[in-house]
């Protein structure tokens, strides 16, 4: 418990220090937020282009699709805020040797890697997602209030799933000599948890629900709010999946760090 408190205080401090430094260059930060928003707007446009012409898609109404998409931005945005170092971990930490410094501090190495820098502008995605959900809710007749109330918490679980999956992929760079890492290709797959999972066939559903469980991060969490009884078991499984993948991730990082200790690279 003391360790949790220590890390929570440290996280707050890391975040505050980083935000302070980042906001010191206001114009630059504004440009970053704008770029980030353009990206979100572009990927949102894909959904609007495709689905706005159909009143229904595979049993989903247009507002429901917007709700799904809007929600998917919440865990994704949270993940983006903390994932900037995972993205080029192999390069920045292993090749350039910064990982040594991480190991010299009495703080969890994974914690340091995740929270040493933030992509603050990605909070924009969380805001955009919230707005989209708001719009969708105003057009949907009966959204479950409990489902809505749990959304933020489930978004955090979703973010934990994303962080864990990319943490696992990043940890592979302890073994695989590869400057770029495995994360970029899988990154592309994140967007597919954003569409109704019912449009895919069994293979894809299985993939998105097991090996790369992105459906648990961005699709199943909406089941309660949208009253999709058939997915409720998955909805309640989201916290379990998040914890399981987080533990897996921590375990793999332990192994990876042990390996780093024996190979030094």
């Amino acid at each position: 418990m003391r360790r949790v408190r220590f890390h929570a205080r440290l996280l707050a401090l890391y975040f505050a220090q980083y935000a302070k430094a980042r906001l010191a260059y206001r114009a630059d930060f504004a440009a970053a937020v704008l770029a980030s928003f353009l990206g979100t707007a572009a990927s949102f446009s894909v959904v609007l282009l495709l689905f706005s012409r159909f009143p229904h898609l595979a049993g989903w109404t247009y507002p429901e699709i917007v709700f799904l998409y809007g929600f998917s931005l919440l865990p994704y945005g949270l993940f983006s805020v903390v994932s900037s170092n995972l993205w080029d971990f192999a390069d920045r930490y292993l090749v350039e040797g910064r990982f040594d410094r991480i190991l010299l501090r009495p703080v969890s190495p994974l914690f340091q890697v995740l929270f040493e820098s933030f992509r603050l502008e990605s909070l924009q995605e969380v805001a955009t997602g919230a707005v989209a959900i708001g719009w969708a809710v105003s057009r949907l007749p009966d959204v479950s209030p409990l489902g809505l109330a749990l959304l933020p918490l489930w978004a955090v679980f979703g973010a934990v799933i994303y962080v864990s999956v990319f943490g696992l992929l990043t940890a592979a760079s302890f073994w695989v000599e590869d400057r770029v890492g495995l994360a970029p290709p899988v990154f592309n797959l994140m967007s597919f948890g954003r569409y109704p999972i019912t449009i895919y066939d069994l293979k894809v559903k299985l993939l998105l629900s097991t090996v790369i469980p992105f459906a648990f991060a961005s699709f199943y969490p909406t089941a309660l709010a949208l009253g999709r009884g058939e997915f409720l078991p998955y909805f309640w499984a989201v916290p379990l999946v998040a914890v399981a993948f987080a533990l897996l991730n921590v375990a793999l990082w332990r192994r990876g760090i042990a390996r780093y200790g024996s190979t030094g690279s």
């Binding site: 401090l13 890391y14 220090q17």
Partner: peptide, 16 residues
């Protein structure tokens, strides 16, 4: 920490 002011680095180390 590369991007933040030195004193902020010291604050972090103080906490750590």
């Amino acid at each position: 920490w590369w991007d933040i002011a030195v004193v902020e680095s010291f604050q972090l180390l103080r906490e750590i």
